[in-house]
Structures are given as C-alpha cells and as structure tokens.
Design a binder for these strands. Structure first.
Lengths: 333, 333
DNA sequence: CTGAAAGCGCTTACAG
DNA sequence: CTGAAAGCGCTTACAG
C-alpha cells in the first residue's frame, strides 16, 4: 500500500477526515471512542502527516538552511565523520539534491523514522562511525532507500546499499609496513569490540603478522578518541616495555599514543614505529606526522550520494561498494 | 506583496495559469509572445516555484537526509567551520527544526537565493569563515531572516542578525600572554587583509603591545591554512631571526608555524613562544599542544540557531551578540 | 496551441 | 461534538 493519508486513517476509524485531523492534532473535544479509534488506526497504518501538504497549508517549512561556501565544506576533514559528510554533500550537490541533516537523538529514537515517513526526504545516507545498534534497527523498515557508510551490524533488510572501506586490507597494509620497517614486537590499539570495521582491521593485521612468522603482540581496545589512545598506549607499554611497533585503528588514537610514547622517552620512529588509520587532519599536524592507512572517506560519502540518487531515479547500480585503503607514508614509521 | 504565485505571474502576463506553468516548465510549443510575457513577469515579480506545492503534486522532495548520531556531531571539531556547524545543528535540533545544508556554489550564485524564495526553509544561518563578498550580496534581500556567524563585509540590510566572537579582545589576550611570558620580539601571522575578523585580532594585538611599550614585530598574511602558516613563518624568520614570540590568527597556521620553527632549530616554547587562535582539534594534537585564543565556535552556532528560531517565531531578541574569547593555556607559551 | 478543471494531502472556518 | 467544503500552489490530462 502507498503511504497512508489521513483519509485512509479516517475511513479505517469510521470517522470524517476532519475528526481524524482533530485527533491527530491533539484536540481534546472529541468523543473518546472516536479518538481512540483514530489513534489506533493511525498507528496500525503507520500514518505520518505528509510534510509537503502540511507545509503548503501552513506556510512554514520547519527547516533552516545552513549556508556555507564550498571551500568551507572543503575544510571539513578533521575527522572521519566530517570527511564523509563533505563527500556526501558534494555528491548530493552534483545531483542537485539538498542535503538535510538528521541528528539521531538517543532519547527519541522514533524521530528519524517519523521524519522519513513524512516524505520530507527521498532517501537517507547513514554515516556509521560508531556502531549504533538502535539506530540501525529503527531504520530497517525505512520507507525510503538507505545508504550505509560503513557496514551496519544487525538486520538491515535485503539487499542493502553499503559503502565501506577495505578494512581488512588496511590491517594487512599496516602490519606489512611495520614488518618491512624491521619491527618485531608489534602491539595494536584496536576499536571497540562490537565494531566490525575495527575487528576487520585487527584480523588483517593478525593474518599478515602470522604470515610473516611474527607473533602478534599485545592488544588493547580504545574508542577512537585521543584520550583512549593515550590510555591504551600506557597499558601497551606496561604489557611490553620493549614494543617496537604499534598499529592504532584511528589517527586520533595514534596521536594520543604518540604523546604517551614520547613522554615515556621513546623516540618515534627511531625506537617505536607507529601506524594510524583514517588519514584525517591530526595525522598531518602531529610531530612527527603519522604514517597511516588512508580510508577514502570523501569518496565513500560521494559514492553513497551517487548510488542513492541513482536508486531513487530507478537506475540499476551496484549496491555494495568496498573502496580500497592505501598506506600513506609520513614520518612515524 | 506576499510571495508571488503562478497565478500572479499568469495575470500579469495576461495568460492562463496553465500556459504560465508550461512556459516556466520550459515547454516549447507555446506562442512566443506569451512565452516572453510570462518570462518577463516571472522575473519582474521574483517568482519562484513554491517548494511545498511542487512537492505535494510531484511526490518527490529533492532532498536526502544525512543521518548521524549526536556524538558524531560531537566529533565535529576539527575546524572553525565544523565546530560552528555542530553548534548550529544542536541548536536547531533543540528547537525541533531541520538543518538543511546549502553549499554555496561559486559558479552558480543564484542557486541559494532561488532556493530561499521557494519557501523550502524558514531562515538561514551563514557560516562566514572566509569573506565571500558575492555570497553576502546575494543574500542581502533574502525573503527569510538571515543569521550571520562572523561579521559580514558589505551591505546586508538594516538590523542584521550577527553572532561573532570578540576578536579584538582575543588579540589583546594573545599579546598580553606573550608579553607576560617575557617575550619582546613578537611577530604576527594574520589573516587575509580583507577579512575584518583577522584585522580586529591584529588591532588588539598591536594595541596591547604598544600599551606595554613593545614595538610590534613583523607581520605576514596567511589564509588560515597549515601551508600558509608554514610559508608565513619562514618569511617571519627571514625578517627577524631573533623573534621570540609569534601570534598566529588560526590554530592551523600556528601548527604550520610550529613545524617550521622546529625545523629551523627553535625550541617551542623555550626559544620562541607561540599563540594560536580558534582552539580547534589540531591545537591539542600538535607537539607541544598550542596555547591559543578560544573562540566559542559551538556557542556561536547554537546562538545563531536560537536567535533565528526566536525571530521566525516573532519573538523579540537581541540581534547582535559578540561572544567572549578566552586564553587557553597549553604548552607552546 | 490554449484554457478550465481536477487533484496532490492537509487543516480549519463554517454550518449544524 | 461532528462533517462537508474551501483552499494552500502547483502540474497535467482532457477538451477544444
């Protein structure tokens, strides 16, 4: 069935469309029997007020534009999220589609699904930096197509649109670079255990070390932040003071680790080699700048936009795209 | 006159509403006389297709949602722009208003004014990092209220909504900190000369040095990027190799300057003290972390959202707000 | 080639 | 307390 209208709700509840509208608007002077009938049917049908109709009637959009120069979007590269956002914004602009920001509120999980049912957007791109299980669940039965940047955990329905980086190869690249630099006692600062992308990096790293005949060193979990990188590095040094190589699953954690290493008197890269992941701004501003595994975040965002636009237009496209990761050599290795 | 409709255009052109619609849709099989009459009147009246009506008719929004967890917005702090965006997004979310991203295309200046006339948004926030004169001009006669983050150059009409940081005091704080650290040969890396905010910082710096009986040292312009900071620092060292203090008008330029200083054998802060501006992520990840003048970027974004929402709701609010800057002491001073 | 009319889905002033 | 009807602004199938 097509998106239900208020007429569908009214019919199902056996009342006039005016009454249904009143109930849905929260009016109190309506027969309680009718009220509950309307509320029940609205829920059953998954009714949500049509955004365009309300706007045409009321004259108010309920939206505010954020104007920014394109080169300001260009400056968005400080973080994973900012870079992906930048790519997506560019891709959407190229398709003459407006990007609408939908912050997912932890306290009100229903907001986004509701918004999607209102018809205000033709599709959504989800930038999955951290695993947000409830968000994934609440988008599983979206009435509009969803493109996932990063592979979602859990059930997202059949044939999802997924854009991800090749995390597994990224882990291999990091391990190989450390081994080729002559490192033999190599630890890892990985991401949260429930985050599949981090796990794949770790798997690649483990495989490549094993393949090279080197036993993987100590592993500590972080949460991708600078602070967690500092804490993780301190624990890594406790576990093996003679560590000569570290792979951190994000540049932020790597830059935290770098600071702890230097404070502990280790010279990087002389005593310890360090490889990060992401290739975001802090990788270039730290001292020494970080050798890191580059995720093509901007490309991922742009690709998500393109696939989604094509899907909405009814064109056939490859719905899963894993973009390559590459090693960017700077001075921490 | 209220926003003109296609009926207004049709009347003015002396044709039926169907004909006007055909012309506006680009149909070719319309009498040339009628065609040009419609086109002329549409232009005269500043007609733009009502977004809600088209959407209700056509069923397509022409928009795509970017779903992101709130803590991902929280990670937006790599740059001036990202932090302001983060604050604005939070402020809008609190008011239950959707943020719509409007990238300003250099090649198509008309796009944003057109969009605003379509009624798709109730207001706009402009994040002015660089001075974008043409953008300012093209928004001067916006049909919806505009909130400027950063003081716009040029004519923006009467009684504009402006949210800015106290750049002048920021410059004073930087100079005072350098002087109190015992520095006497203090150079400055400022912003582009046409950018009022950078000029105010420089003015504050100059005033405070003069007040302390210290002659301001050499000045070089940058464009707020890391690279421009590196180039500027190199020139500063040429002009005065015995410099013992530097104020850079952005943290990115400061981190570029830091690298050049260290490459030139200067220890920071032992030989040279360095103060940045903004307090964005790279200030905390550089080595040493930067002492910097903090702009409350997130507050500025949030304030812009709040003022705009209040204005749209018809509430009276203070339309100009200059938020305080503060010195954040880290280790480069 | 042009115009009168229907209809997208909603809300609310009006009549009962 | 409830319903029939008008109207927000647009586009297009239909009739001429």
């Amino acid at each position: 069935m097509a998106r239900p209208t208020i007429i569908d709700v009214a019919k199902a509840a056996g009342v006039s469309r005016a009454t249904a509208a009143r109930v849905l608007a929260g009016a109190t002077n309506v027969d309680p029997v009718m009220t509950s009938a309307v509320e029940r049917e609205a829920r059953n049908l998954g009714y949500e007020t049509n955004f365009a109709a309300r706007m045409l009637r009321g004259g108010r959009a309920g939206a505010i534009g954020l104007v920014l120069a394109f080169n300001e979007i260009g400056s968005l590269n400080g973080t994973f999220f900012a870079s992906a956002l930048k790519g997506a914004a560019k891709g959407l602009a190229a398709g003459d589609v407006q990007p609408v920001l939908l912050p997912a509120d932890d306290e009100d999980l229903g907001r986004i699904p509701k918004f999607l049912r209102s018809g205000a957007v033709d599709g959504v791109i989800v930038i999955l930096q951290h695993e947000i299980t409830h968000l994934v669940d609440s988008l599983a039965d979206s009435p509009v197509p969803v493109a996932w940047i990063g592979r979602p955990h859990g059930d997202v329905g059949p044939d999802p649109i997924v854009i991800d980086a090749d995390n597994h190869t990224g882990g291999i690249l990091a391990a190989r670079a450390l081994v080729e630099a002559g490192r033999r006692r190599i630890g890892i600062i990985t991401g949260p255990p429930d985050m599949e992308q981090a796990n794949e990096r770790t798997r690649g790293w483990t495989e490549e070390l094993t393949r090279s005949g080197i036993a993987p060193g100590p592993m500590v979990h972080g949460d991708f932040t600078v602070d967690s990188g500092m804490a993780a590095m301190a624990r890594l040094l406790q576990r093996d003071p003679d560590l000569d190589g570290v792979f951190a699953s994000s540049d932020l954690m790597a830059s935290g680790a770098l600071r702890v290493l230097q404070a502990a008197g280790r010279r990087v890269p002389l005593d310890v080699s360090l490889v990060g992941f992401d290739d975001v701004l802090p990788a270039t501003t730290s001292d020494p700048p970080l050798t890191t595994v580059r995720q093509p975040l901007e490309d991922m965002g742009r690709t998500a936009a393109e696939i989604l636009i094509a899907t909405i237009a009814g064109r056939e496209v490859e719905r899963v795209q894993i973009l390559p990761t590459t090693l960017v050599r700077r001075e921490s290795l």
